[in-house]
Write a protein that binds this DNA or RNA. Structure first.
Lengths: 157, 157
DNA sequence: GTAGATGCAAAATTTTTGCATGCCG
DNA sequence: CGGCATGCAAAAATTTTGCATCTAC
């Protein structure tokens, strides 16, 4: 099963926490949705689909725990609520989020691309970067193409 | 007075909103604290110091309005609540926030430094950047120096 | 004068907490 | 078995909203 990749039991044990059905279920729900950025409420819904007996409070406590031990990350996508997603253990730092202002799509970018930025921060500010959280607003490829097509179409009339 | 720099009346008028004592007061409160990142509650407290008659609901509505017309920006600094700060009208894009993981200090960086990053996003993802919101976690200059001094000190023992 | 803004209180959300019970290690 | 974890419900915290009243333009 996928979640074994995360070795939840061992990770929890390392920090002195117990592996419970509830924690495993929250992890499973999140692993089924690695492409999405789920809110606490949405995680709760997915969890209930698997095991309706699990309570909201436990989901909140589990989310907090998972954040603390670094297997999920929190992000605020400016839509009114906190959202969460799995951390890829291979990634040295958080991935970036491109938010299209036209279609609202959120694109994950795993490549760092911030080497130059980090060098500048160290040089100019003496700040040693350990992690970064980047949200980029703009126009995605698809919407940019649509806009261009529309423009062409209008010119032809 | 400082707030005239923001020409609040004219800005509001442009969007069809009225200039009220309450809105002016919220702006004044924020302008007195441009070095801080205030929460809604903290803004309310500062506002009450100037005019105790203004209500919390008005502060919330004003914050939303100010965000919409772009004179303040919202940021979530991972301390459990949204925080707000004035936008410098000279800045083309939002400034970056460096968050020291040791002392908790938040350092504003006005320089962009992301030119290379934006070029890469356009080249590799076809994404046209209009704005970005960057939080950088790490060790600030002061704390880095302290750590180094301590290390030296220990080595001398 | 009139549409938009405010204040208050109530409602809606979101998150946390207390405590008896359950269950992992 | 002992202590951490859970479920439930209640509380706390945060934000929004309805509505009568007020006020900027």
């Amino acid at each position: 099963m996928l979640h074994h990749v995360y070795q939840l039991g061992e990770t929890l044990q390392t920090y002195g926490y117990k592996l419970t059905v509830q924690r495993q279920t929250v992890l499973d729900a999140m692993l089924k949705n690695t492409d999405k950025h789920l809110s606490a409420e949405e995680i709760f819904e997915k969890v209930k689909e698997i095991n309706p007996h699990i309570g909201m409070a436990t989901v909140y406590r589990t989310i907090q725990l998972f954040e603390k031990i670094g297997i999920i990350h929190q992000i605020f996508l400016n839509d009114g609520m906190m959202r969460y997603h799995m951390v890829n253990p291979d990634e040295k730092h958080e991935h970036h989020h491109l938010i299209c202002e036209i279609c609202g799509d959120v694109i994950d970018v795993k490549e760092d691309m911030l080497e130059t930025f980090e060098e500048k921060l160290l040089l100019k500010k003496g700040f040693i970067v350990t992690n970064h959280r980047v949200k980029v607003f703009g126009i995605c490829k698809t919407c940019a193409k649509k806009l261009e097509d529309e423009k062409k179409h209008n010119e032809e009339d």
